[in-house]
Amino acid sequence: MTYRILGNGPGFWRMVGRGVGVTALLAAVAIYILGATSDPRLQPLREIALDISAPVTEVVGAPLRFVRRSADDVGEFLDLAAHNKQLREDIVGLSRWREVALRLEAENAQLRALNKVTLAPRFDYITAQVVGNSGGAFTQSITINAGRAQGVRPGTVVMDGTAAIGRVVALGQNAARVVLVTDASSRIPVLLQPGDIRALLIGDSTARPKLQFLSTPGKVTKGQRVLTSNHGGVFPKGLPLGTVDALVDNVVRVAPSADFRQLEFVRLVIERVDLTIDSDAVLIVRSDGGVEQEKPDREADGQENGE
């Protein structure tokens, strides 16, 4: 018997099959339009998919990750001598930097004491494991095993330990999807240092995202550090992203600092909200985005009421 994908069998059932097939096709077109416009109505579906797929991927991927890690270990063992040499050279370089860091730390503490500045920590950190990835051809994103239940929020910044690698775009109860800085949909306001040049880091699905809308294009040089600038309010200021790598045909490319190959665990940067709100306090949101509390004056209220 020859099967036709749009309906089989005698007249009536063939028509029903075609009707169902055409409906499914129209539904796919509708979902594509919603997906292309990033419509929030697809969010519940994404959450369900994340919550179902993340734990299964973690279990299915465990033996594969074990095999890959073992292969890596064997490779590293074979390169032991070269690694040792490299590490010795790194130690010499880092010792010099340690001295510089200690001196700067002491100087910083001295200056803070002089100014009586007390800096409260602004961020909390959550560590999560990378359980899945998008596969690479059309999207560059990862799935992590921390979600709403662990305090992750949409837009939460994700780091590999030292450098920012992306931000949370979809949330499940115990899983989240992180779009990487190299993805074609990624746009991050950045600051180039030294020079304080403002720009936009734009992912284009290559290993080296590009910089556009530079405030002073003439001052860009290879090796400048690329940091987040907090314009737009998603990324906190000063997180390292990478360094200026190449200037080819007026396109400035950035080499990300994160080592994506070794990405097994990530750190999520959660902005701390330290407000304790009394039941009868009034919360005021200032025009600059800050928040402050104002307590009602009970005594004045009492006098006004004729007591």
């Binding site: 299915v60 799935t143 190299t182 994506f260 190959r261």
Partner: peptide, 15 residues
């Protein structure tokens, strides 16, 4: 799910 397993991640990974 097998396509989703993260053996390598990011722009330098083999699809």
């Amino acid at each position: 799910i097998l396509s989703h397993v993260a053996l390598e991640v990011g722009p330098v990974s083999t699809p």
